[in-house]
Design a protein around this nucleic acid. Structure first.
Lengths: 183, 183, 183, 183
DNA sequence: CATGAATGAGCTTTCATTCAT
DNA sequence: CATGAATGAAAGCTCATTCAT
């Protein structure tokens, strides 16, 4: 499989996450890789296609969680496990993709891939708290997921390690999902 | 008297919140108001200046809360009151400004006004949970504020009224700030 | 006579000479005087009119020299006297106007006032060396005048006083005009 | 190969010399070549870069003269030779570049390339007459070079051939440089 | 597997100028 | 004697995209 393609994805994700989708031009990506812009078009048919490709592997991961979740009763333990698996998925490149998504709302909204991801997010939220739960509980469920996406953003000014951040985010998310079940 | 200036602010906020900062061109704003682009430049010296002006009134509100908060001991009740006041501030146009800010991270980051707002956010978070609190507690404090910013985004697909949304967000935020005080 | 009008002329000349005609905007002039752009239009009907007005007093001076010169035989002494008078004219604001003219060729060319000034320059040159003189002599005559215009420009990097510069320029010009008479 | 690049340089120089730097827009250059403005940006990264490129080959020529001059004693003959070589350099496109430079003072001043050129001019002047020479002599040395730059400008109204103009300018310059050595 | 050359559309910004008040 | 508000035109520049080679 073309190495260049992988490099493009890597650099694009770096830049997208760092500077945002709109502010990152294909020229910039190409220059960092020391190839021409036209080369990017050999590997991806558009700027949007790069994003799509970035989201794809993540979506596979989310789908696995969704499948796993949908085939069992939503016990408190199962809910916790979903969060844990989701948090795990977000270590590695997935985390950057999600942060990129969370921080680039408007740009993402009119990308097909963005909407797909958004749908999955809603489905996952729907599993954690159903449509008839009290609103605050539904919000808590959504927030539990979203706080995992945003932990980098929310604590950017704190000098902590990735692991510390990750652990704190997980703990808060677990707590939130737990409290999204009012008896 | 400068009615136009106010109209520009209004339309700009609408468009910025809806489509994002980068995707909103001055042409678009001007067309909606049926004036020329140059007219915008009569009232604001740059695109960035429009955003700055949007943030300004909000900052005054936040500053009032900060002052209020800084001159009293952080009892649990005071913390709740901060959240309540902050939530109140976000009804009305302030809410759109904050949502705009939360959803446009990358664009905002290199706007002076954005950084100022960010600083206030951190200061407020610092009041709600100090620098030596356990990380999850600090995160919870931040999340309590941020969830107010993002409630529109997080429940966009739910068919609820603004009031319902607002109440749910407030309740969750109050709960979060409450739990950010581990004994 | 309106003080403001005089102030506009003064500031405009300063800026035109310093930064050039095109790079100096009416906004800049207005700001320096703390009036509005519209005020400039009260006193001058266009940007070009400001320049015209600047040239006007200078032209009167040149005309006086021309008249003086045209009514007497061009003895070597008369030629020297022309240069001396011209140099004298260029002390004070006239010098800036001429430098401005010399350094802003392209901008000046399509200003009516610029062409008028140019014509006078040629007429003066024609007096100092007639159309049938050898080319180098004609050039020397022109250069003698022109070097007075450009002395600031030509010695900008030298740390000398205005008087020193003026004296040097005069001496060179006198010498040039002297040698523009090949026997 | 990149024929277009050369064409851009050619047309740009034509227009810059004719109408000045500021008055020449990239649109104009592009239209004359029947390409789009964006095409210019493919070949040059900015308007300034076009000028820079124009100056470059000339600077090489001046540097050769400077090197040649710096490695030998400044006898009267050497001084004459410098002027001759410099005049020769100014036949061909270099002449237009220099005239462009001389006539666009203010625009050139804030172009890096313009300042480089200016520095060379001062260095050359410094060789022809040192820092301790009487001021008029220093001025004469500078004027000898400058008159070569400006000969077109100074004799624009005379109906003469390029060669006649060139010869006259050279003769005057040689004379000037000769007289810049007071015994 | 990629490049060199170019485009069309759009962007933010600036300018000289006008005119009702 | 001046301002406040606006305009039309244009500028320099950037971007995603295309396509022949």
């Amino acid at each position: 499989m073309s190495d260049t393609r992988e490099q493009i994805r890597r650099v694009a994700l770096e830049l997208f996450a760092e500077q945002g989708y709109e502010k990152t031009s294909l020229r910039e990506i190409a220059e960092r890789l020391d190839v021409t812009k036209a080369a990017l078009y050999y590997h991806f048919k558009s700027k949007e296609a790069i994003v799509t490709s970035l989201f794809e592997e993540l979506e596979a991961g989310v789908d696995k969680i969704l499948t796993w979740a949908e085939e069992r009763p939503m016990t408190p333990d199962a809910r916790q496990e979903i969060i844990r698996r989701y948090a795990e998925l977000l270590r590695g490149p997935g985390g950057d993709v999600m942060r990129f998504m969370a921080e680039n709302g408007p740009a993402i909204r009119d990308l097909k891939a963005g909407n797909d991801a958004r749908e999955r997010f809603i489905r996952l939220a729907g599993i954690l708290s159903d449509k008839n739960a009290p609103l605050p509980d539904q919000l808590r469920a959504r927030l539990s997921i979203f706080s995992l996406h945003m932990s980098v953003f929310l604590m950017r000014d704190l000098s902590i390690t990735d692991d510390e951040r990750h652990d704190a985010a997980l703990q808060v998310a677990l707590d939130l999902v737990d409290r999204s079940l009012s008896e």
